[in-house]
Simulated scan of single mutants.
Amino acid sequence: MSEWKRYLQTAFARPTETDRTRLEVLAGARLPDRYWQVVCEHQGQVLDTDGLVLPDEGEINFGVLLLALAPKSLSKSDASYTVEDCYRSMEDRYPAGLFPFADDTGGNYWAFDFRADPANPAVVFVDHEESGADGVTLAADSFAAFMALAGQPQDE
């Protein structure tokens, strides 16, 4: 079983429903409830797990769970780990409808893919060495399935 560990050294405030609303407006869709539970407890942490194995990509680290807090409420260095900052850095290079939630610490992202089903987004890996659809690989059909791949049971 995988375990959450501190990555960023700051003690962050717990995200609020205002934070969730702000992110959902940016995403253009409702974020999965399971994701919101996880980010409220573990934002800024890494999941200590064996890498997730994806076809054609190999083993990939989970990385850092991005911060759900508003960038303006954080230091400049911590703000670079916010969902908004990462979203802005990828929005012009990849298809619309992708929304990052974790950084693999190598410049790549794990993201929700709202394109096919905004009510139940898949999870994709976004490779920074590619652009457009070529940089997007399906990882799991849902956030719950993705977390199960990462060694986190449903009730965790």
Rank of each mutant, 00 (worst) to 15 (best):
S89N: 13
E91G: 00
D78Q: 10
W110F: 08
D155Y: 09
R93L: 12
P153W: 01
Y94I: 03
V83H: 07
R14F: 01
E129I: 02
H128L: 08
V83G: 07
G106C: 02
G58A: 11
S80M: 13
A13E: 13
T49F: 04
V123I: 15
F12C: 07
A79F: 11
A11K: 13
D117H: 11
P95W: 07
T49E: 09
V53Y: 10
T10G: 02
L149C: 01
L65H: 11
A140Y: 02
C86F: 03
K76S: 15
L98Q: 01
T105G: 00
C40W: 05
F62I: 12
S131C: 07
K5A: 12
E41W: 08
L138A: 10
D141I: 00
R30A: 14
D85C: 10
P121T: 05
R20I: 02
S89K: 15
L74Y: 12
R34Y: 04
Y7K: 13
L69V: 14
F62G: 06
L31P: 03
H128I: 07
L31R: 03
R30T: 14
F114V: 04
D33H: 08
D134Y: 02
L26Q: 14
V46F: 06
D113M: 04
S142T: 07
P95Q: 05
C86A: 13
F101H: 03
P121R: 07
L31K: 03
D103C: 00
